[in-house]
């Protein structure tokens, strides 16, 4: 029997579907944390610390940090997905060996992974969006577009995570990346400390951090305050993403195909 070969888009999507299936199997356990985390964060930092901070650029502190949480949650979820989880799939569960024995190629499989990381970015930032909406922290209907920025955040950080994963020989090494890279990015991206309060050197550095641009876009959409610099943020991400994705595919191919 001769069947039509699965096309490239379908091959990528079928890998995405595998991850979606695993995730939605435990929807309650998996779906809970993205709602709880921003609550804790807002309670502790926003409303707690906010007592001591006046306003930033004319907005109350909790209002200032809320949009950034959509970006940071997307960063963390996609990072964990394509570091620890991908490593487990690769080295312990040998899932990719199975996947690659089907018509799925390396590129299909890992574009599927990155797409999934983007989708998680989307869903997680949606969850945060719902929470901050309940707190009345969303000021513009454009806020509804924020999860799409979450998607771009997920794709960016998923790709970066995959590059890291391609080098890692021991799962504990991811700690270095998370604490050594992601945490500093969190603090230097303007989520809780406004960029113009940073020393000159760090401010320049922050421009080269993808999260900064995700945060800027989130803030513009959610507060409804658009600037020309928003275009720069969008262009920055649009240039960064293809590069990051290509690097990720190149590196993971080098790792897996011997």
């Amino acid at each position: 029997m001769k069947t039509a070969l699965p096309g490239c888009a379908w091959r990528i999507f079928s890998v995405f579907l595998r991850h979606k299936k695993c995730y939605t199997k435990h929807l309650f356990a998996n779906g809970f944390p993205p709602f709880i985390e921003p609550l804790l964060f807002l309670a502790a930092i926003g409303f707690g610390l906010g007592k001591y901070v006046d306003t930033i650029n004319g907005v109350p502190y909790s209002q200032y940090i809320a949009p950034g949480l959509l970006a940071s949650t997307a960063m963390y979820t996609s990072t964990f997905e394509l570091t620890y989880a991908a490593y487990i799939r690769m080295e312990f569960e040998k899932i990719y060996d199975a996947i690659l024995s089907t018509p799925i190629g390396i590129k299909d499989a890992f574009l599927g992974e990155i797409l999934w990381a983007g989708a998680k970015g989307f869903f997680f930032s949606s969850a945060v969006l719902i929470v901050i909406t309940l707190f009345g922290l969303v000021k513009s209907p454009f806020g509804l577009l924020a999860p799409f920025v979450g998607f771009l955040t997920g794709v960016s950080f998923g790709s970066m995570a995959l590059v890291v994963t391609s080098y890692v020989k021991d799962i504990n090494n991811f700690n270095f990346y998370i604490t050594g890279c992601c945490t500093p990015m969190f603090f230097l991206s303007g989520i809780i400390i406004p960029l113009d309060q940073l020393p000159e050197g760090l401010r320049v550095l922050s421009f080269f951090i993808p999260l900064t641009h995700c945060v800027n876009l989130m803030r513009e959409l959610i507060l409804g305050s658009f600037h020309m610099s928003g275009i720069i943020d969008l262009v920055w991400l649009m240039l960064f993403i293809p590069v990051a994705v290509s690097c990720a595919i190149y590196r993971i191919r080098k790792r897996l195909i011997v």
Partner: peptide, 19 residues
């Protein structure tokens, strides 16, 4: 085999890889 999925789910997911 995919340890996160059941027997039938393994087969469904795998079938999709073949389109």
């Amino acid at each position: 085999l995919d340890p996160e999925l059941t027997v039938a789910e393994n087969l469904v997911v795998y079938s999709r890889f073949f389109g």
